Amino acid sequence: MEIINFSEQNTVINQYMSELRDKNHQRNRLLFRNNIERIGEMMAYELSKTLEYKPKTVTTPLGTLDINLPKEDMIIATVLRAGLPFHQGFLHVFDKAENAFVSAYRMYTNREHTEVGVHTEYMASPSVKGKTLIIVDPMLATGGSMAASIEALEKTGKPKHIHICCVIATPEGIDVVKKAVPDDSHIWCAAIDPGMNENKYIVPGFGDCGDLCYGEKL
């Protein structure tokens, strides 16, 4: 499995990440969502370089030429609700892709809020059989919601290839996902942080992505 960590590169993604993490910038909810979306666009562009291509003849007003275009059928899947702006960034690049949505959310399973379970409540997806499946979720913390989403999506068929895309991941989350996907899968991260606190939030991270995008939930 290949893991791509953009924080190890000199890229403007690091500027957007610094604003996402900065608690003063986080007061601007629109900026926060836009930065998540922009990271999605840039990650999608980099991912596009790994796809298979085939030539297509295009007719212009003055002649014809061959242009290499992606030949893969693609599905972009996201985990509600935090994944929506990230998903939109990918859609700006892969505008012909099909889409899937999974409602998978964490639930604390003890009174101290130190143990987390995952509940999958809803899924809307076309068949992923034989297609390139891109699963986008900003936070890969414990890996539980991502593994549950992969399991739910694979019930519709076996994908040709799987790309896991996130803004921030942890080593623990990556280890969980590795066990849930084939060895030739890719994990794309804007950053990999050291770990989580006792409440299973990524540290240093930037907090709850869904709340920062859309407001606190009950």
Score class of each variant (00 low, 15 high):
G157R: 09
V203A: 05
D208R: 10
C213Q: 11
F206T: 08
N197D: 14
S185N: 03
D175E: 15
N197R: 04
G210M: 06
I187K: 03
H186S: 09
D193C: 08
S185D: 04
H186L: 07
N199S: 09
K178G: 08
E198S: 09
N197Y: 13
H186C: 01
T156C: 08
G157M: 10
H161F: 03
D208G: 09
I187C: 04
D211R: 05
D183Y: 09
I164G: 01
T170S: 15
G157Q: 06
Y214E: 00
I162Y: 02
H186Y: 12
P182N: 14
P204V: 10
T170V: 03
E216N: 04
E198Y: 03
P194L: 07
A169V: 02
A190Q: 06
C165T: 04
N197H: 11
L212V: 09
A191G: 11
E216S: 12
E198N: 08
I187T: 11
A191H: 06
G157P: 09
K178Q: 14
D183G: 07
I168Q: 01
K178H: 15
H186D: 02
K160D: 13
G210C: 01
H163S: 04
E172P: 01
V203W: 01
I164Y: 02
A190Y: 06
D193T: 04
H163C: 05
G215H: 04
C213P: 04
K179P: 02
G207V: 12
V167P: 00
C166N: 14
D193I: 03
V181K: 12
F206A: 12
P204Q: 13
P171S: 15
H161A: 01
D193W: 04
F206S: 08
T170P: 13
E198P: 00
K179M: 12
T170G: 06
G215W: 03
G157N: 11
D184K: 14
P171A: 12
I202F: 01
I192E: 13
P159G: 07
Y214H: 12
S185T: 10
L212F: 14
T156A: 04
A191W: 08
D208V: 06
N199Y: 02
Y214P: 00
K200M: 14
N197K: 02
K217G: 00
C166H: 00
P182K: 11
K179T: 14
T156Q: 13
T170Y: 08
T156L: 12
I202W: 02
Y214M: 03
Y214L: 06
G215I: 05
P159A: 09
K160M: 13
A180G: 11
A180H: 14
K160Y: 10
Y201N: 01
S185G: 03
